[in-house]
């Protein structure tokens, strides 16, 4: 069973998924960040594959992507870093990034490497569902990779249904019409959107992401979905202060959970 499905079968609420950019803050921190997140009880990790032109991302992830690339991060390097990671951690791992580096690496070779290191799913924001169905679905399935789609407040009901039908992991509810980035609170209109999606009784679980930044926004989001995803706020926390990476991660995860 895919680890994503296993997780949602065992845990129905307050699922915490954390995004970080591979190769950030240092080229060799990928593994340390992963292990530390797991140790502190995170449920899912999204491993960001940095791209030079991340159009769906706000300033924080733009900056971490650029820094990672300047550090010398590549997909080849990432797969080396993830080698044997499955001897140490068992939670779902999702690779997140833009299509072009994946295509240059070679789609099939990429999927093979994902399978080899134990990646469970993919989030490729610039791969729309229509194109996925035509050209990518078969190959992803062949390698046991769940493709995770985004749904936004403006996604039509018909399209949400299509995405639900084509999803076999979870649905990523983008909390508002925006690029990635932390916000302080969740507005009324966002709540109405979450409720509208809930009322659709989708067959897949949902996680809310974009703008989730602290305990308050996390626990609010968890009321309307199976859990939530934090990216920019985590990366920001890695930047702050003089403490060790370990301590920063520990403190951050703790601050979200309590």
């Amino acid at each position: 069973m895919n680890r994503i499905n296993k997780l949602f079968a065992e845990k129905e609420q307050d699922i915490l998924s954390v995004y970080f950019t591979a190769g950030y803050p240092a080229i060799d921190s990928t593994r340390e960040v992963l292990l530390e997140l797991v140790k502190n009880g995170v449920d899912i990790i999204e491993i960001g594959m940095p791209f030079s032109d991340p159009i769906a991302d706000g300033p924080v992830i733009q900056k971490s992507s650029l820094q990672a690339l300047n550090n010398g991060m590549t997909l080849k390097k990432l797969f080396e870093q993830l080698k044997d990671i499955r001897n140490e951690i068992d939670i779902p791992l999702i690779a997140m990034g833009y299509l072009n580096p994946v295509l240059q690496f070679g789609l099939e070779k990429f999927c093979q490497h994902c399978k080899d290191v134990g990646i469970d799913g993919l989030i490729l924001p610039d791969l729309p569902v229509d194109l996925y169905l035509e050209e990518y679905k078969d190959i992803f399935q062949q390698y046991g990779l769940h493709n995770i789609f985004l749904v936004t407040p403006l996604t039509s009901e018909e399209r949400v249904r299509l995405i639900d039908q084509e999803t076999s992991g979870f649905i990523y509810l983008v909390s508002s019409a925006s690029t990635t980035g932390a916000r302080k609170d969740i507005q009324e209109n966002q709540i109405r959107y979450f409720e509208r999606i809930n009322a659709m009784k989708l067959s897949n679980p949902t996680l809310i992401g974009f703008g989730i930044s602290n305990h308050e926004t996390f626990s609010r989001a968890c009321k309307y979905a199976h859990g939530a995803i934090i990216g920019s706020a985590f990366i920001h926390a890695l930047d702050e202060g003089e403490k060790s990476l370990k301590e920063k991660i520990q403190r951050f995860v703790k601050s979200i959970k309590t």
Binding site: P125, D126, P128, L150, T152, T155, S156
Partner: peptide, 8 residues
């Protein structure tokens, strides 16, 4: 090759 946010 658009993100869902640009789809509509």
């Amino acid at each position: 090759f658009i993100p869902e946010m640009m789809y509509p």
